[in-house]
Design a protein around this nucleic acid. Structure first.
Length: 321
DNA sequence: AAACTACACAACCGCAGTTGT
DNA sequence: TACAACTGCGGTTGTGTAGTT
């Protein structure tokens, strides 16, 4: 798509919009190689591309930057990280994305948006049983839960790092990421309170460029987080979920959880069984027995209205640590 | 096989913060 | 200090695709 924009000199310049062509990508990549990921506006002023600087930057950040997990669906670990961090930070997608190597804020945002829509639909269906019954089919996503130990990394990507990587790092295709083996340390951003997250910052980390897509290869301990008691489980249909929301003692099942405890890094009581891998469920497959008798408390978080986290106090700012 | 639905993804827009002049 | 340009972020929309009926 081409649109025309008047310049300060009164000239009409064409601005290209819409999907990027391979040639445009090439021009953009060459520009970054020469000048680094900056001066986006100069790309147009030099006549290299009929794109706005904004558009160029977005294209680079979301698609062309090295080590992006393009084409990789969010792993269960990543999903859980997003859910946890969204509860902590709110819709700070860029911030959340710093914990997810290879993911952009746009990725996180899209993931969350999809998830919200899914939840909304589930709730709507639950509110109107007739409609939910009429639609017998259920997408696998609706019954998915988290089971694997999630990963949490917090890389700090600087422009210089990008420039360096752009010259030598391979793109993060599914195949080469799945071949990933050993890893290097990635610094946690200063916003992370290691105590809070119960992090061992000396564990092995997957290298950025080899970050695996597959769940089984991401086995960095996730911080213990308050979990619901095991006897509080929800069927994927969210019927119990809705009932639970109406229960005035609903949140009692969380036990005495409050923000100060969290910020002090206090170990919250977590049922041992919660930390065990429940099953090697992946790719949205679930067996009927588990569906009928959900025992994994993570399902609680998965199909839960995000509003539930509103009662959790925001974390202190990093400067307070 | 066609129609429908849900989902994932790409890209745009507006706003706010930062930086340079 | 004021202004403009640049940059980054979050919200939103449009489109292609896979799965289901």
């Amino acid at each position: 798509m081409l649109v025309f924009q008047s310049t300060m000199e009164g000239k009409r310049e064409e601005i290209r919009k819409g999907p990027w062509k391979a040639e445009e990508d090439e021009v953009l990549i060459n520009h970054v190689k020469k000048y680094g990921p900056r001066d986006w506006s100069s790309i147009r002023s030099k006549g290299l591309l009929h794109r706005t600087g904004k558009s160029c930057r977005l294209r680079w950040v979301n698609k062309l930057r090295p080590n992006l997990k393009n084409g990789c669906k969010f792993s269960l670990e990543e999903e859980r990280v997003v859910i946890e961090l969204q509860a902590q930070f709110g819709n700070k997608w860029a911030r959340i994305a710093t914990y997810l190597p290879g993911r952009t804020d746009n990725d996180v945002k899209n993931f969350w948006s999809s998830r919200q829509k899914r939840l909304a639909r589930i709730l709507q269906n639950s509110a109107t049983p007739s409609s939910s019954n009429s639609k017998s089919h259920k997408t696998n996503r609706e019954v998915s839960t988290f089971h694997d130990v999630p990963t949490l990394q917090a890389p700090k990507f600087t422009s210089s790092m990008e420039e360096e990587l752009s010259s030598k790092a391979p793109s993060c295709s599914s195949s080469n990421m799945e071949k990933a083996g050993t890893i290097k340390m990635v610094p946690l951003p200063d916003l992370v309170n290691p105590k809070l997250l119960h992090f061992d910052t000396h564990f092995e980390l997957t290298p950025y460029e080899n970050y695996p897509c597959t769940d089984s290869q991401l086995q960095i301990p996730f911080p213990n987080i308050p979990q619901p008691q095991q006897d509080l489980t929800f069927s994927p249909d969210s019927q119990e979920l809705l009932a639970g929301l109406e229960d005035p003692h609903f949140f009692d099942v969380f036990g005495p959880v409050d923000a100060p405890q969290l910020t002090n890094g206090a170990q919250l009581p977590v049922e041992e069984s919660f930390l065990k891998p429940v099953r090697s469920f992946r790719n949205d497959v679930i067996v009927k027995e588990e569906y009928d008798n959900p025992v994994n408390p993570d399902a609680f978080f998965d199909d839960f209205p995000t509003d539930m986290f509103d009662h959790i106090e925001p974390l202190p700012s990093p400067s307070d640590w």
